[in-house]
Design a protein around this nucleic acid. Structure first.
Lengths: 242, 242
DNA sequence: CGGCTTGTTGAAGTTTATCAACAGATGTGG
DNA sequence: CCACATCTGTTGATAAACTTCAACAAGCCG
């Protein structure tokens, strides 16, 4: 496999793409931009927002509530596509904030449609990726609704590991993770204090360690059991693929 | 407006469709089927599941957890499309259960693709509907993560009312609702007992009544305020529409 | 160094779950 | 059409999970 973008290699892992299609994909990365951590790239209500393909760094998608709290819907890591729904609606329905310094390629609606019309298989691949993201949101919803704090946290860390492994940024034993406990809390629907206690429990039980920007998985089997983690929603076969 | 299916009239409310396109949409309703309440139409893991357009009755999409609890991801009402993601993955990633007796039209992947290739605008319209459903799931996630039981319940009842109104099954003052408190609990991530208490509070405060299969909204403004209900995620303008 | 964010821990308070009991409604077979 | 079983709704008492407040330590950045 050549030196592809994380995006192309992620899609390629699920839908067989020709070299030509891969090249077309990589050509989407023209308008490369850099965003500093902490300042929103897209904000709720923004008209005609752009979509992006994330090349490096992490971002989060979130919504603010009237009381000043926020809920993070998901994190995006290198290779992820973001803002597709907002482009379709011509209005952003959530905020997007870089968690770290981020490099991303802006994708205009017109470019995307043009690429799709040239190679319908790419349209299918992107639709597949969008569906996978939706499946992750659903699993997130299920976790917040029916898993307790410990199961939920364990599940989150496992899912993240699985996603990072796919783009070569982690292994079964651990990965680098730039998330603060505050961010974790806003994603998991918990208070930061409680996240801290849960992480301590997981650490003291010898399951996972999350310290100094690294997640170390010490007992994968026990963690999977605790979290009731079923990976199938992440690695479906490609859609309608020959 | 002629005597269209709820599905056609829902799409038509957001994307201007010609009579010809409307007719093509209605033609999808060939394989009409009836399902009794309570027995799953689709179950998680099922291979090559069908998609359906709901003509009458209510269904819920849910996932089961290892502990025996379940989380309902959303309810579908007449006019809603269901199972699109499962068709794309060729494997169902959630269960679908009729809440009432249901009439639905089975839509085969091939029929759908054929219709889309004839009229790309219909593909756009369906994609719009799917994105709207995804936005609802996101809002649901936000509610479970960061709203307390009362706000969450109020928000749910308002959203349902808004959706039902769109297909002519409700008004600003109320609607028929076949959901039990158990179903509500599984959707809201609460216990049935607590749902009961919350409904009582809402009733005693003169905001909403949910009794005998009807939701009566007595003080819309106060309810909207309490739930922090912002309808915009439900009625975006059509996607890329001319 | 000094200021700020992040992580950590204890104590007290709130929300929500669980258990249990019963009433009312609904449905089924005899 | 009644008798019985089963689901749904209701309420009280108790327990568990999680939040909030507060204080301080540790890391990070200008």
């Amino acid at each position: 496999m050549a030196n592809r973008s994380p995006f192309a290699s992620k899609l390629g892992a699920f839908v067989a793409l020709s070299d030509e299609e891969m090249t077309l994909l990589d050509r989407l990365h023209v308008r490369r931009k850099v965003f500093p951590a902490g300042r929103d790239m897209v904000h709720e209500g923004q008209k005609n927002p752009s979509a992006y393909i994330l090349a490096s760094g992490w971002v989060c998608s979130y919504k603010l509530l009237s009381g000043g709290t926020r809920q993070i819907v998901d994190f995006q890591i290198p290779g992820d596509f973001l803002g597709l729904r907002s482009v379709l609606f011509r209005t952003a329905d959530h905020n997007i904030e870089p968690v770290t310094r981020v490099e991303a390629s802006e994708v205009l609606a017109t470019d995307l449609l043009e690429t799709f019309s040239k190679t319908p298989r790419l349209a299918t691949a992107v639709l597949w990726a969008a569906s996978r993201d939706e499946a992750m949101v659903v699993e997130h919803l299920v976790g917040i609704g029916r898993r307790d704090a410990k199961e939920r946290t364990a599940h989150f860390l496992l899912e993240l590991g699985s996603r990072l492994k796919l783009v070569g940024l982690g292994s079964a034993s651990g990965y680098a993770c730039p998330l603060s406990q505050n961010l974790l809390a806003d994603a998991l629907g918990l208070s930061a204090v409680h996240v801290n206690r849960v992480l301590r429990e997981l650490r003291e039980e010898g399951l996972v360690t999350f310290q100094h920007g690294r997640v170390e998985i010490h007992d994968l089997d026990a963690l999977v059991l605790l979290a009731d983690f079923d990976q199938t929603y992440l690695d479906h076969d490609g859609p309608l693929l020959k």
